[in-house]
């Protein structure tokens, strides 16, 4: 549960995809940082946006809402959005919110890149 609470977001281009990697807890204090990074990533991505959540051990509903916004933006722009490497606790938030079937969630980054 205890982790890096100061969130950072790194973005990388690889194999035609934009990979966004938030690191740290995504909560009310940090979700706006993630939102800004995702909006910027949308502007630079050509077809596929991957959000790699390997380094996110906690996410609350403000983080989920940020990802829903990103999903809506992706649908409008025709971009493919994929979530990968979700920790069990983060995945459980999506399950409780019944959003695990709404997002494309894959186990690994390789699978996201190959999708």
């Amino acid at each position: 549960m205890q982790g890096n609470h100061e969130m950072q977001v790194n973005t990388e281009q690889r194999d035609g995809a934009t990979i966004v990697r938030p690191e740290g807890d995504v909560d009310l204090s940090s979700s706006s940082t993630l939102r800004t990074s995702l909006q910027e990533a949308h502007e630079s991505t050509e077809g596929k946006l991957i959000i790699d959540l390997a380094n996110v051990k906690y996410m609350d509903s403000s983080g989920v809402a940020t990802l829903v916004e990103c999903l809506q933006l992706s649908r409008r722009s025709g971009t493919t959005l994929l979530l990968c490497q979700l920790h069990e606790r983060v995945l459980s938030v999506f399950q409780i919110a019944r959003l695990d079937g709404v997002f494309d969630i894959v186990p690994s980054l390789d699978e996201a890149l190959a999708h």
Binding site: S61, A65, V68, I96, A97, R98, L99
Partner: peptide
């Protein structure tokens, strides 16, 4: 929850947990 949109999930999460 069928209405997929940002926000408004907090009370649902509390009630479920």
């Amino acid at each position: 929850l069928e209405d997929v949109r940002p926000g408004g999930l907090g009370v649902h999460l509390i009630n479920e947990i």
